[in-house]
Amino acid sequence: MNAIDAITLEVADPEAAARFYSAAFGLDSSRVRLRACETPTSGFRGFTLSLVASQPGNVDALFTAAVDAGASVVRPAAKSLWGYGGVVQAPDGTIWQLATSKKKDTGPVTRDFDELVLLLGVEDVKASKRFYAEQGLAVAKSFGGKYVEFDTGSGAVKLSLYKRRGLAKVAGVPADGTGSHRLVLSGPSRPFSDPDGFVWETEPART
């Protein structure tokens, strides 16, 4: 396994969620899929999704579009030591970080973004790093037991690991949560669940 082909968000109303993601971020089922699910979940689901843009203006455009489409503001967009960004929560409950490492605009403002990144909040970063390495994912960056970034090549989604409580703090939400992650990942490998209960399904072969 060396890529994530797509992610599936399990939501109460797939049609409403599809309208939101199209209006807010211009996302379709090529990267973010939706399916109906009523499995109980509460609090922090243990992951965030990030859209990484090239400049602050794009972050603002994405942020505004998300709020206009029905998202709630978790953390207003603002400058920080690492760049510029904010956090919103989609109507289905998924937390989205909208960010850039740049602090000034260098071109026309659009809603374009460069990367879609999945950050999994895990209890033991080192153990999860070993687990995913055994599944075939190569480590691109690693900072001890705090953060790991994998090389997912040309996959539609980038994958990183973060300490669960640290990820919740970055997102601006309490770390407590119970029930389903409401997230399923698709890749070319065999089906499995990781140490924190995140589920992977095999991506069907394309004909």
Results as ranks from 00 to 15, higher is better:
residue 2 N to K: 05
residue 5 D to G: 04
residue 7 I to E: 01
residue 11 V to P: 06
residue 11 V to T: 10
residue 14 P to T: 06
residue 14 P to Q: 03
residue 16 A to T: 14
residue 24 A to L: 02
residue 24 A to K: 00
residue 26 G to F: 02
residue 28 D to K: 01
residue 32 V to Q: 00
residue 35 R to D: 12
residue 36 A to K: 10
residue 38 E to N: 13
residue 39 T to E: 10
residue 41 T to A: 11
residue 41 T to S: 11
residue 45 R to W: 00
residue 46 G to S: 10
residue 46 G to V: 12
residue 52 V to M: 15
residue 58 N to T: 09
residue 60 D to A: 08
residue 61 A to V: 00
residue 61 A to F: 03
residue 63 F to K: 02
residue 65 A to H: 02
residue 75 R to L: 00
residue 79 K to W: 13
residue 84 Y to W: 14
residue 84 Y to C: 12
residue 86 G to R: 02
residue 87 V to K: 00
residue 87 V to G: 04
residue 93 G to F: 00
residue 93 G to H: 13
residue 93 G to M: 02
residue 96 W to M: 11
residue 99 A to F: 12
residue 100 T to L: 05
residue 102 K to M: 13
residue 102 K to C: 09
residue 102 K to P: 15
residue 103 K to M: 07
residue 105 D to M: 03
residue 106 T to H: 12
residue 106 T to L: 13
residue 107 G to W: 12
residue 109 V to W: 06
residue 110 T to Q: 05
residue 113 F to M: 05
residue 113 F to T: 14
residue 115 E to Q: 14
residue 116 L to E: 02
residue 121 G to A: 08
residue 122 V to E: 13
residue 123 E to C: 14
residue 123 E to V: 13
residue 123 E to H: 13
residue 127 A to P: 08
residue 127 A to L: 12
residue 129 K to C: 10
residue 130 R to C: 10
residue 140 A to Y: 05
residue 140 A to C: 06
residue 141 K to R: 14
residue 142 S to D: 13
residue 145 G to I: 15
residue 148 V to I: 08
residue 149 E to M: 09
residue 152 T to N: 03
residue 158 K to P: 01
residue 163 K to I: 07
residue 165 R to G: 10
residue 175 A to T: 09
residue 176 D to F: 04
residue 179 G to D: 08
residue 180 S to K: 05
residue 180 S to N: 02
residue 181 H to T: 07
residue 183 L to V: 04
residue 185 L to K: 00
residue 194 D to G: 09
residue 195 P to H: 07
residue 196 D to C: 12
residue 198 F to N: 09
residue 198 F to H: 15
residue 199 V to W: 05
residue 203 E to F: 00
residue 204 P to S: 11
